[in-house]
Write a protein that binds this DNA or RNA. Structure first.
Lengths: 126, 126
DNA sequence: GCAAAAGTACGAAGCTCTTCGCACACAAAG
DNA sequence: CTTTGTGTGCGAAGAGCTTCGTACTTTTGC
């Protein structure tokens, strides 16, 4: 099997690592605590668990270990969307997409981009 | 506040109620146990908890209580998609939709339906 | 009438997730 | 050097989810 789906907290940390690149516990904690009240050791522990789960990898060559995301953002998004699609939409991409667009209207600009993707997808199968 | 998001198990039961309409514990259990090995009292307990959470409502006029979904399928789907959109896609419907379509290609027929929805959405804002 | 069947309620155990305090190692500053 | 700061590791507590055993009540079938 590949990587497990990240939990909500794990996702938060991954987003920081994706945005800033490899980072120490302190750096991640500094980022996160700007948005949320959280203890240093909480972040440390989470990163340790994520290392076990192979969601991140750790460089121990320095005294302050440096963590790096091992799961790419696209992969994580894909597995989370796929999971929801299976659990709540009977595996139908169409159903999920229509629900998303109906509930959260996007800018015309964005709709155009989606249309472009549809063109590509249809073109490819032709 | 509205309804809480259903947990995975709760979603399973809701899907049965949505599909078959109001049902007794026995009926729900019969359905579910065709797909999964699960105890009768497990289903009972879950439905009781879901009653507290207002996800379902219970008609106690008969000895065998009859449960009915209080949360509509569209509502549940909407809140789950919205949650994922916020947590993993920075609130962007476009990003979520593009990931879903890229990862799980749909039938041309379905793509056409999505295209129709896009037309509607753009038409409405014009 | 009484045993068996069908029902509800309750409590608790096991799991994962999340959070942190505390102990300890090491470095840095005075 | 000893005190203060910065780091890791460990353990454990609390919450929510999931599961089911057990106890008790009410029908139902003989």
């Amino acid at each position: 099997m590949t990587h497990p789906r990240p939990t909500p907290s794990e996702l938060e940390l991954l987003q920081i690592l994706w945005a800033t690149g490899p980072a120490t516990v302190r750096a991640v904690h500094d980022q996160l605590s700007q948005r949320r009240d959280v203890g240093y050791t909480t972040v440390l522990k989470l990163l340790q668990i994520m290392t076990e789960k192979q969601l991140v990898e750790r460089d121990e060559s320095q005294r302050s270990h440096v963590y790096r995301a091992r799961l790419a953002e696209e992969e994580a998004q894909g597995s989370m969307v796929g999971d929801l699609m299976d659990r709540a939409f009977a595996g139908s991409a169409k159903a999920l997409v229509m629900r998303a667009l109906a509930d959260r209207p996007a800018e015309p600009e964005e709709l155009a981009e989606i249309r472009r993707l549809l063109d590509e997808l249809e073109g490819g199968s032709r």
